[in-house]
Design a protein around this nucleic acid. Structure first.
Lengths: 293, 293
DNA sequence: TGATTGTCTTAGTTTGAAATGAAATACATT
DNA sequence: AATGTATTTCATTTCAAACTAAGACAATCA
């Protein structure tokens, strides 16, 4: 009862998100059935999630009548908390590898010992890293890390790959951007620019960047483009939660994004494409392995 | 003892391949140690693989002296036999889905029943399909197929994606093609053109095509380009083992590949890039869902 | 009565432990 | 210097148990 399942955890967060999106205020009533339908899930985990929220004091159950929202939830202080346990482990592994604290080859049991994980967790972990071409199964037992620990050339290759794809998303015949997405993105960028920079802002900043690029790829209407960009984001997530470029780069980066948004609103896709190209080229100049865009 | 492991199976095939590459003749002696080193594997599975080959009468063990090669192995009659069980199951699932014999959502148990597989096999299967963005986990239990069963637009999107990437492989700064690869590719293509077309040639033809495009991507020196092209090949493998265009297309396709090889030998990367672009564009015209390049 | 919540049953999945089997490694033998 | 043998380590499979989600039904309130 005290153990929030991954699914329940996710649903609890999505519920709060839905409350925010719908602009519900304290005193509003939540509906289990419609929430379950909306999340494409059965009522059972929704009930459990609501119980957890009730235990946190965010909602109250009225027996046989419904669930009352006690206080309108604030936007999450630390975006990026959404990362599940596996994802956190992935980041740790990537960092340890980056710092040279992991050998080239390693067995599953060794990983279980090092990170104090169960076998299924390690398997999920490795499967996802293999999916990103960070590791591969050895022919016999164990895993081997690909690429050298700190690989200079990977940085350039990554950007050349992105330069092939991302500037073209605007020119896909099916490209279509929702106004709501533009508004939300603009708001997030402007908030980033207006708030003072803290060490802990790095995760949120990365997520905003990733959402920006992935959202554009999704708008292209080409599922393969979208898939490739999402994969890039996942890969970079492993090494980019620490931002070491300083605040000026944050400003420049955000300004360039805002400029693209304005250009897109004006409907000039050719110009947007050119902006994206120079945006990526400028980012490529930053000489740091696994640098951020 | 009568059960050849996946690893042992693979090693047995690689051993024959190595024998062919080194041009060994009947009467030559094989060496367990060096073979194990060369395959980056311990001696144990190599021994087992040799035992299997001995049982097939290809080699003979001389106690305490070594292993004698009895007959120089011929090139495999049916390339494409290399597909393991999981891969075959993937093809079956893709075909069933394509033919509308699978619902949009399905549970693991249902899959185990339908395909008579163990749970771990189903998990591997689904993990790989999810890797290709063909399915996704439902939030609760089960899996959901993405894309509609027979999706017209996927065809065009796929080619537009490939058009962004593949013509550029020749222009990557690190592009470098080995002469040996060119020679081998040319030989395979010419053999395809000279032999009569049989129904069973389709698999070999697909593999040759895939190897051609993937080999070029690997030569680009950009791991992300290589990875993207390999992924495309894996995806197409699921729906392209049946070739329905007729022999003329085989001829046209092979001729275009040969022309590219000649252009590359001449060192004209710009022209090769243009040829690849028109090659893909021509293939895109062929109006069939999930058509081949 | 209609709609929503509470309760219960069933089907499905995940976890954990034990057993099996295979690969890596070290050592002996030829 | 290679093959043969034995031991150890590791991974996979299997099975049972615990748990979770889905779906159906009963109870409650407007």
């Amino acid at each position: 009862m005290a153990t929030p399942t991954r699914l329940q955890q996710e649903i609890a967060e999505r519920l709060l998100q839905m409350v925010r999106e719908d602009g519900l205020q304290a005193g509003a009533w939540l509906n289990e059935n419609s929430a379950a339908r909306r999340l494409n899930v059965s009522r059972t985990p929704v009930r459990a999630a609501i119980d957890h929220l009730a235990r946190q004091g965010l909602v109250r159950r009225h027996p046989n009548k419904g669930v009352e929202l006690l206080s309108a939830p604030e936007p999450p202080a630390d975006p990026g908390t959404g990362a599940d346990a596996t994802e956190l482990a992935m980041v740790k592994v990537a960092q340890d590898r980056h710092g040279g604290r992991l050998p080239d080859e390693i067995s599953e049991l060794e990983l279980m010992r090092r990170y104090e994980l169960g076998r299924p967790e390690v398997q999920r972990l490795m499967a996802r890293l293999a999916d990103l071409d960070m590791v591969e199964r050895k022919r016999g037992y164990g895993w081997r890390f690909l690429h050298e620990a700190r690989d200079q050339s990977a940085h350039d290759e990554r950007y050349r790959f992105r330069l092939l794809i991302e500037p073209m998303v605007f020119l896909e015949p099916g490209f279509l951007l929702e106004q709501g997405w533009i508004d939300e993105m603009r708001a997030r960028h402007e908030q980033t620019l207006s708030q003072p920079w803290k060490e802990s802002s790095a995760i949120g900043f990365y997520e905003m960047n990733a959402d920006f690029h992935e959202g554009l790829a999704a708008a292209s209407g080409n599922r393969f483009i979208h898939s490739a960009v999402r994969r890039q984001n996942q890969m970079r997530r492993l090494s980019n939660y620490d931002w070491t470029y300083g605040y000026e780069r944050v400003v420049v980066n955000s300004r360039e994004h805002l400029q693209m948004l304005a250009t897109l609103e004006a409907g000039d896709h050719q110009l947007a494409s050119a902006l994206m190209r120079s945006h990526l080229q400028r980012a490529m100049q930053l000489r740091r392995p696994d640098g951020m865009d």
